[in-house]
């Protein structure tokens, strides 16, 4: 079985990478999990997973100069595929090869999380959402974050990708329940959790470690674990897993 999730938000700064890594670590207690930095233009997952010094990254795979296996690293109970941060690496990478990368990884894992770019303005930016089976939309309780999250949902569903749920992140005040309830009405998936803003998350990022490794007992870490628990992973068709992602195209309108 394998299910691919795009962890997406229309807007930057929602804590998407922190969320991807935290959900990955929490899901890794039940599943074999692979996290991929699919934000090839503004990669930062490597800084969250202590991989800033590694030589081979997704950029090399997308440039067809390395095999997928060479860019995978076992860290914190997960398989991590970081992306490089150099301009040259970005320039030489062919983002459309991401399908092939996901297809290869899919043969050997239960859950793939794609940390997606916080934009919808290019083919490369939307590709993770196109490839994924479902999207987790990361929101903050602000008008632009919710508007942009709605746009992500509409792109996702237009491209045949379901919404697994919404995750409020960096929540600073009380009263989120009412906002979450009203927001949920417009989304195809439930509210997975509201994760409080956390100084621990900032510390973890500075230390180059995932939040769940750095401060496993903090409130935000507990919230991410609850979010992961409420995410039921579906069994994708297992006979032609690789083909499913290689051929992921936008369905024709009915």
């Amino acid at each position: 079985m394998v299910e691919v999730f795009a962890v997406a938000s229309g807007k930057g700064g929602t804590g998407k990478t922190t969320s991807t890594v935290a959900l990955g670590m929490a899901l890794a207690e039940r599943y074999d999990v692979t996290v991929v930095d699919a934000d090839t233009g503004m990669a930062n997952l490597l800084f969250h997973a202590g991989l800033s010094e590694v030589e081979t990254t997704l950029h090399d795979v997308l440039a067809d100069s390395a095999a997928v296996a060479d860019a995978t690293y076992d860290r914190f109970g997960m398989t991590v595929v970081p992306c490089g941060t150099s301009l040259e690496g970005f320039r030489d990478a062919d983002p459309s090869r991401l399908r092939e990368v996901v297809a290869t990884l899919a043969a050997d894992t239960d859950v793939i999380l794609l940390d997606s770019p916080p934009a919808l303005d290019s083919r490369a930016a939307v590709l993770p959402v196109v490839i994924a089976d479902r999207a987790v939309v990361v929101l903050q309780p602000t008008i632009p974050a919710i508007s942009d999250g709605l746009k992500v949902q509409e792109y996702a569903t237009s491209y045949g990708t379901d919404v697994a749920g919404i995750l409020f992140n960096k929540v600073r005040e009380d009263g989120i329940e009412s906002v979450a309830e009203k927001t949920e009405r417009y989304f195809d998936g439930p509210t997975l959790e509201a994760v409080p803003e956390s100084e621990r998350a900032r510390e973890a990022r500075r230390a180059g470690r995932p939040l769940l490794a750095h401060a496993p007992d903090c409130e935000a870490a507990a919230a991410y674990r609850r979010a992961a628990d409420s995410l039921s992973v579906r069994d994708g068709p297992s006979d032609d897993v690789a083909d499913r992602f290689r051929s992921a195209v936008i369905p024709e309108p009915p």
Binding site: T142, I143, E173, I176, V179, K182, T183
Partner: peptide, 9 residues
């Protein structure tokens, strides 16, 4: 504090 967001929703 969420007043504007709730009005939007």
């Amino acid at each position: 504090d969420h007043g504007a967001v709730e009005a939007f929703l």
